[in-house]
Design a protein around this nucleic acid. Structure first.
Lengths: 341, 341
DNA sequence: CTGAAAGCGCTAACAA
DNA sequence: TTGTTAGCGCTTTCAG
């Protein structure tokens, strides 16, 4: 199989079928304007010759690419689920996706550069660390939708989870179970951390538990949760809400190693509903982001900008949903204490 | 920002810089044949106008795309690591990657179809369920490299882990620790399961432990490992090698719930060295696949086929490497025996 | 060193 | 219903 074999083109099919290339083009893309018999014959020839349309030539000519560029990070557990939803939504809207990955050795800038060269009509960015000014200069050239990113700018659409609401749900659940001394392990500098922390504090105040507010600094990793647990152990609360699932598993581990039972002695709530939280022996109660809605929202925003239709609000906030599993339960009746609200 | 703003093209840059498009083309791709001064000026203008080359037009004209299509599955934990290595290797070989994802609602055929339209020069397929005949018909049109797939065919290059060797490493490690009664939980119908099982059996025989061979049927999921553990508990061996990490965690969980200590009472070895196995509270000894070597190998095979260079062997088998962590240790001296540690 | 001209494979007007 | 004619933005001879 030498590469000498030129690929079959429209012209080849046209010649073989004895018609013009224009007609074959019409038939190939199912456009109206071709006789049933001819159509049939052309299709047959195309199949026989193994004709494959050349998307580049096609897009080049038709001016538009109907391509949506997506930048995702191979390391992020979330991004893959998001891709699933994005493909669905894009397909429905009549757009195609082209993917560009960020890896430990391939930066966001490179990933975006590739997409720009592919003449995408809009960009969907997951997470990412780009400076606001860079984002702005890209957004000046084509619509950009940022998902799960802090960018609260006027030149970029933002689709993200309602982090504050998620924390509310977690706290409400714990309070409903009877907890009062509820701590929070935050996510440090990570996107969403500030919102989740604030949400926790607000919910605590709303329940009249301001005096029990206790924030321990953490991070996004397992070790961050473990470290936070050590600090919590000095005076354990009856429940903890944690920035994310991974950190929560680190915390769980340390808690158990120190002989605390979960949820007997202490309840734990994670965030994100990752596969990890669903593992039987972790079985973590967690706040799940509505990934499909977020994906659909992102595509809808992108398409709206491309087609210049509505230009609705720049920000789309999607409500999360609490997934109650095995790490939360009623607190043990406090020894000796009898404060009943 | 209306879409009326046409993108800047080579011609725009040429006009602005007062030179011909051909010259700009030369400068833009760093080809020889332009004066230093002109080059400088053209580059400056291009930057000022925000010129971005159009990869489609470029590739269309130059005949070749230098594009490698990659089909991966968003659900597979492995595939993302593989992508990292693939980007590196492809870049070094002067090729670009275009990604096409398989999702729960987007099949492999669709994913491949997109890539074919993009005029990739070769395909790299991760896993996948395509029938051999389909694979063959695709391979008839362009070089195909299959990774981690059973395809042992003459029309497709195959790059995969040496599963048998991995099992050998696991068993050797355990025997070295003093284990004799070593069981194996297999992966059912999954790719690699048969090889890993056979490798286990062979290694056991090699160590003169044929009488202790014990295979329990399992699968790739956590619940498969859990189920296997239940069966193993009837008469626990001192060590188990498991098809993959996920299954191993399910097994670990059940073992511990039944009061067995790991590695005190029983040692466990997983397979794949996924992120899961590295979590502090799982800390699973496991057989790691050499992902970077596999990725580099896949690209090297693909490029060789494209450029018609060597046409070496169709199959590339990469040795794995045992990652010793906390779930393996010396067996407890058998009751009645008198070996004191 | 630079420019003019000829397409790559396809689509979109228009004409027949 | 079908064919003709222009290009899309770029690279690539080939002259100057």
């Amino acid at each position: 199989m030498q590469s000498a074999e030129r690929r079959t083109t429209l012209a080849d099919v046209a010649a073989e079928a004895g018609v013009s290339v224009a007609l074959v083009s019409i038939v190939m893309r199912g456009a109206p304007g071709a006789g049933a018999a001819t159509r049939e014959r052309v299709l047959e020839v195309a199949r026989r010759l193994g004709y494959q349309p050349d998307s580049r030539a096609r897009l080049l000519r038709s001016g538009r690419s109907r391509l949506l560029g997506v930048v995702f990070d191979v390391r992020h557990p979330f991004h893959h689920d998001l891709l699933t939803g994005l493909y669905d939504a894009a397909g429905k809207a009549g757009y195609q996706l082209t993917l560009s990955a960020v890896t430990p050795r391939r930066g966001e800038r490179t990933a975006i550069g590739d997409l720009l060269q592919d003449r995408c009509e809009a960009l969907v960015l997951f997470g990412g660390q780009l400076r606001a000014s860079e984002l702005a200069s890209i957004a000046a050239r084509l619509p950009v939708v940022a998902m799960m990113r802090a960018a609260r700018r006027r030149d970029v659409d933002v689709v993200h989870n309602d982090d504050a609401l998620g924390s509310h749900q977690a706290v409400d659940h714990l309070v409903g179970l009877g907890h009062r001394r509820i701590a929070h392990v935050d996510g440090g500098q990570w996107h969403g951390s500030a919102e989740r922390r604030a949400g926790y504090q607000e919910a605590m105040r709303r329940h009249g538990l301001a005096e029990h507010i206790r924030v321990v600094s953490g991070g996004a990793g397992e070790e961050d949760g473990a470290r936070a647990a050590e600090r919590l152990l000095v005076d354990p609360p009856t429940a903890v809400t944690v920035f994310n699932d991974l950190s929560a598993t680190g915390l769980l581990d340390v808690l158990r190693r120190h002989g605390l039972s979960v949820p007997g002695d202490i309840s734990v709530v994670g965030y994100d509903d990752t596969g990890l939280s669903r593992l039987a022996h972790i079985d973590l109660t967690t706040v799940g982001q509505d990934i499909d809605t977020m994906a659909a929202g992102a595509i809808e925003r992108a398409v709206a900008r491309i087609e210049g239709t509505p230009a609705g609000p720049r920000e789309m906030v999607v409500p999360p949903r609490l997934m109650v599993r095995g790490t939360t339960g009623a607190p043990r009746p406090a020894a000796g204490a009898s404060r009943q609200p």
